[in-house]
Simulated assay, not measured.
Amino acid sequence: MILLALFGFLIVIGPLVFVHELGHYWVGRLFGIKAEVFSIGMGREITGWNDKRGTRWKLSMLPIGGYVKFAGDMGPSGRSDPAWLRLPPAERAQTFQAKPLWQRFLVVAAGPVTNFLLAIAIFAGFFAAFGVPRTPAVIRIVLPHSAAERAGLHVGDRITRVGDREVDRFEDIAQFVAFRPGEAMTIEAMRGGRLITLSAVAGTDKQTDRFGNVMERGLLGIAPGPAEIAPAGPIEIARASADHTFGIVRTMVDVIGQIVTGRRSAKELGGPIQIAKFSGEQVSMGPLAVIEFMAMISINLGFINLLPIPMLDGGHLFFYLFEGVRRRPLPEWVQEWAFRSGLVLLLGFMAFVTLNDLGSLGLWQKLAGLIG
């Protein structure tokens, strides 16, 4: 199982990191910036080669990320190397720091954007192959003693809004409610040609999958008619794929908000060990499950990298926004302090999620049993 988890982690994370860094690389190359190093993984180099443009492509020992080092940068943190000012004009023009602010912004943003585009492409492939879900948001079953029955929902009601989300399909209801067990929410529905507004408290359902993972999900206790999945044209597939991708992003924002406000436990946050575990499980389920899981992790990588934390892409973009407003970069000491603080924050977060991962594997219970 451990070997399967490691294998799954490598085949999921490796390509996604490569795609992320390739986004930075290609947009940088588009603007004439020289890439000195393209690394998959961090730390000591395992193997590599130099291409005709002078870029060192390498595979490094720690499979937890990667980076593109452009000319004019000191390293993965993106800090400026003062030596770039002493370069000959032709070489200086190829450095990252010599480029206009808008080009630097696009180079940095390209990594997360590429992750989102990859997810959209994967979902588009699924929708093209299997059709787009279009189940009408009309209730055909209301379970007895359910949250829906207590709220006053009836068979035949067409739900138009749940909480702050407009509803077009029944799938939209399930996605919204699933991440809100035990939460109160407002439901708008059409009944007999008029709009009604009801209040409901989602029920809680604990589910255990075939791998023993326990998930707590919210539910209303309603069901639609037969699921409708219909073929669609390229434009509708593209729109549905983008909607699905950014619907997942919106759910991630909701979950983070729930953790910050205490409505959801921070113990649910997972790190590399949890990703490896889930990757191995998806591998055992077949290639389609792995590809769908890759889309989910790609969205996570894109989202996390856009957070305004120094050392991440979002931190650099935040600084560039300040630079655009102030018409000059932030002082070097401010950036240095921010990068160091960001590094401490990231290391602390990695330690926290690793402890969560070990706890989810039952390590602390086993240790408590040994001590007791």
Rank of each mutant, 00 (worst) to 15 (best):
A178R: 14
R326H: 09
F211G: 07
I275K: 09
H316V: 04
V249M: 12
L87T: 08
S279W: 03
A338P: 02
F211S: 12
A189S: 08
F105P: 00
P15L: 05
T208K: 13
I309H: 07
R194F: 09
P89R: 12
I2D: 07
A351E: 04
E292W: 13
L321W: 13
N305D: 12
I2H: 07
I141E: 15
G28P: 00
G193W: 11
F179R: 12
E292H: 13
L330R: 08
Q258G: 10
M350P: 04
R92A: 14
V214W: 04
F105E: 01
H145F: 13
T55E: 11
V325K: 05
R56M: 13
E166P: 00
V37C: 07
T95A: 09
L10K: 05
F116V: 01
G314V: 06
F105K: 03
L307P: 00
L22D: 02
V107F: 06
F130C: 00
P63I: 04
G324P: 00
L370D: 02
L312Y: 10
G8I: 02
G315H: 01
I291E: 05
D313T: 10
D243A: 14
R239Q: 14
F105D: 01
M190Y: 02
A109Q: 04
P287M: 12
L370Q: 12
L3Y: 14
F278E: 13
A124I: 08
F7R: 02
L106V: 05
E21H: 08
M1Y: 12
G233L: 09
L4V: 14
H145W: 06
Y67I: 06
G163M: 05
R327D: 07
E336N: 13
F96Q: 02
P76W: 02
L30R: 15
V68K: 08
K58F: 01
I256C: 07
A90N: 12
A338K: 07
N356L: 05
P329C: 08
W84Q: 09
L117K: 06
G221V: 00
G8E: 03
G257V: 11
L59G: 06
V177R: 00
S80M: 15
Q335E: 15
G8S: 09
A151Q: 05
I46S: 09
V177A: 01
A119K: 03
R161I: 06
F31G: 03
G72A: 12
F293N: 01
G247P: 00
G270I: 05
T95D: 04
E149G: 08
F349R: 01
V290K: 07
R327C: 05
P63K: 06
R263G: 11
